[in-house]
Design a protein around this nucleic acid. Structure first.
Lengths: 207, 207
DNA sequence: CGGCGATATATCGGGCCGATAGATTGAGTC
DNA sequence: GACTCAATCTATCGGCCCGATATATCGCCG
């Protein structure tokens, strides 16, 4: 989900759409590559939901509407209207996350469907959630990877799948999935270790 | 693209939609998991394009329309119409690939965009194309993986990416991509080897 | 000044997915 | 036989996402 990504980025700093896209590319890198055709509608959706809000409208507007010239602003609007469309001149709408948005982010992180891509996004924003949630997400991911592994192995044993290329595809999928599981195991281990280190402090848990 | 997958499966045997989905799941396994919401519209599209054709309408129709009772068939149609929708009773439309469809399959295999998923599909149907095309696809895939590798490495070196989780994500992406490249290299090697073995025959190439 | 590439916002058509609906068949159950 | 229940089978709908496209400004170079 793109909304998760937007909220995760906006939680760090206020940005306008274009910057947002660049940050998304930087953080999610080769995962997802969000396009404007998704980004702007998603921002509008989030704004309608009250999860983000426009913080400022920069530069362009400052030139088009200098202080205390109401009639001039009206002329500018008329000029815009004459040009077939009402699209504003270099509006740079800077968005910020709201309290509702932070709640929504937590909700999106914690709960829903695991569509292969979304795990990567969630991991990229792990800093925004607590250790139990992180561990829960990691374990859920691991179990879905294990299911995938088993399904692929079952498929290999099915008659009708004797094509060498299909075979190669499945063997490689198996290898990759095992590699991923090992990685998740390392992440879980380091998460648990960090948790234990913090547990050797005043507020005692189980010794 | 789902059309490629449908044509690739139908080239092997004639099937109706439901079977088609099961075969797709078997062959593409954990890649893609085609849903009915994509499958049926895609079949209609392909039929409109003349790439596939309905070969037979089985069972249900055989019961509803027994031989030589035109009026009865008319009644059945009226009955169906009364039920708010015209959806046929257990129609089991069996599809087959046409000559145009085979051409379209070759076209889809050879040319277009590389959206990460489509390579897996193409590989699954490699048996349907010749060695030069296979090598071309493998090399294209390798170069896109190399590009991805480089982009991720660039992203790791960018300031602002100091979050440990983002870091972990990128390191793992790098590892996976390298793993994939090694795999592609093996596929290319075995493809070239098979080509050379066949080249030591009557029709001489370059010694 | 005139073009050119980067910045910036936004829409549109079309594909894909998950949810849902409607219908038929076959097996099991009393 | 009547009843239920799961599986089979086709299909649509709303909604999201993407690529292409339109529009407009900004800063830089020659």
């Amino acid at each position: 989900m793109i909304e998760l990504a937007i909220l995760g980025i906006l939680k760090e700093s206020e940005l306008h759409g274009y910057e947002l896209k660049k940050h998304l590319r930087r953080v999610l890198g080769p995962l997802s590559n969000v396009s404007f055709g998704s980004l702007y509608p998603a921002l509008n959706r989030l704004e309608r939901q009250g999860a983000v809000a426009v913080v400022a409208v920069d530069e362009g507007a400052a030139r088009a509407v200098p202080p205390m010239t109401g009639s001039f602003a009206g002329e500018a609007a008329a000029f815009r209207a004459r040009r077939l469309v009402t699209r504003g001149p270099r509006n740079k709408k800077v968005y910020g996350i709201t309290a509702a948005g932070e709640a929504r982010l937590a909700e999106l992180m914690a709960d829903p469907a695991e569509d292969e891509r979304s795990f990567g996004m969630k991991l990229a924003f792990f800093r925004w959630c607590d250790r139990p949630t992180r561990l829960h997400l990691l374990e859920r991911r691991r179990s879905s990877l294990r299911a995938r592994l088993e399904e692929t192995r079952r498929a290999v044993g099915t008659r009708g799948n004797d094509d060498p290329y299909v075979r190669a595809l499945m063997e490689h999928d198996t290898e990759s999935t095992m590699h991923d599981i090992a990685w998740i195991n390392r992440l879980i281990a380091s998460e648990e270790q960090a948790g234990e280190e913090r547990a050797t402090e005043p507020t005692g848990g189980q010794p």
